[in-house]
Deep mutational scan, measured.
Amino acid sequence: TTVHLNGVTYTFPNPEEARKFVEKLAKTLNLKVEVHNGTYHIE
C-alpha cells in the first residue's frame, strides 16, 4: 500500500498499517485524503 504525502512516497507492506497511518496523519494535520487505486494521496 502506497501513501503519497507532499511529494514523498511511503510504502507499507500491510494495508492496515497504511490506513492507520493515514487516518492518524489526516486527523492530526486536518488534511484531505483521497484514495486512487489503493494509493492514498494526502493533501
Rank of each mutant, 00 (worst) to 15 (best):
V22L: 04
F21R: 00
N14F: 06
V8M: 10
E17I: 12
A26F: 06
E17A: 13
H41P: 02
N14S: 11
V22S: 03
Y10R: 04
P15W: 09
T9Y: 11
A26E: 07
H4S: 08
I42T: 03
G7Y: 06
P15N: 10
E23W: 09
V33I: 14
A26G: 07
N6T: 04
N37G: 06
T39I: 14
L31Y: 06
E43M: 14
N37C: 15
L5W: 15
A18F: 04
K32T: 07
N37L: 04
L29A: 07
T2Q: 13
N30A: 07
T28G: 06
K27N: 09
F21H: 01
V3S: 00
T39P: 02
Y40M: 07
T1N: 09
E16T: 10
N30E: 06
E23F: 11
E34Q: 09
L31M: 08
A26T: 09
I42R: 01
A26I: 12
N37A: 04
E43S: 14
K24Y: 15
T11F: 11
K27V: 07
N30S: 06
E17C: 15
H41K: 04
E23D: 08
L25E: 02
A26Q: 12
A18T: 05
E16N: 09
E16K: 08
R19L: 10
K24V: 13
F12D: 00
P13T: 11
L31S: 03
T2D: 11
N6L: 12
K24H: 13
Y10G: 00
Y10T: 02
P15T: 08
V33M: 04
K27Y: 10
E17S: 13
K20W: 08
E16P: 04
H36I: 15
A18N: 00
N14H: 07
K32P: 03
E34V: 14
P15D: 12
N14V: 05
L29H: 14
I42E: 03
E34Y: 15
N30M: 06
E16G: 08
H41Y: 15
I42N: 02
F12M: 02
T9A: 11
L31P: 01
T1L: 07
H41V: 13
N6P: 06
L29Q: 07
G38W: 03
E16D: 11
G38E: 03
N6W: 14
G7W: 07
E43L: 14
N37F: 04
V8Y: 12
V3P: 00
K27R: 10
L5D: 02
H4R: 13
R19P: 00
E23Q: 08
V8D: 06
L25D: 00
V3D: 00
L5S: 03
T1E: 04
K24G: 08
P13S: 12
E17Q: 12
I42M: 06
N14L: 05
T11M: 11
H4P: 01
A26P: 02
A26K: 11
T28M: 12
Y10E: 01
H4W: 14
N37R: 03
N6R: 10
E43H: 12
H36A: 05
I42L: 14
V3T: 01
L29V: 05
V3C: 09
V35I: 13
N14A: 06
L31V: 13
P13M: 11
E34M: 12
N30Q: 09
P15L: 09
T39K: 06
E34H: 14
L29R: 04
G38T: 02
V8W: 13
K27I: 08
T39N: 15
A26R: 11
I42P: 03
T9M: 13
R19F: 08
V3Q: 00
P15M: 10
E23H: 07
V8K: 12
H36K: 13
L25Q: 01
H4G: 02
L5T: 03
V22M: 04
K24R: 13
N6A: 09
V33R: 00
A18V: 06
T1V: 09
V33K: 00
R19H: 06
E43I: 15
F21M: 03
G7K: 07
F12G: 00
K24D: 13
P15S: 10
A18M: 04
T39W: 06
R19K: 09
V3W: 02
K20E: 09
L5K: 02
L25N: 01
K24T: 12
T11H: 11
L25H: 02
V33C: 14
I42W: 03
H36Y: 10
V3F: 04
N6F: 15
T28Y: 14
V22D: 00
T2F: 13
L29W: 07
H36V: 14
T9C: 15
T2S: 10
T11K: 11
L25M: 06
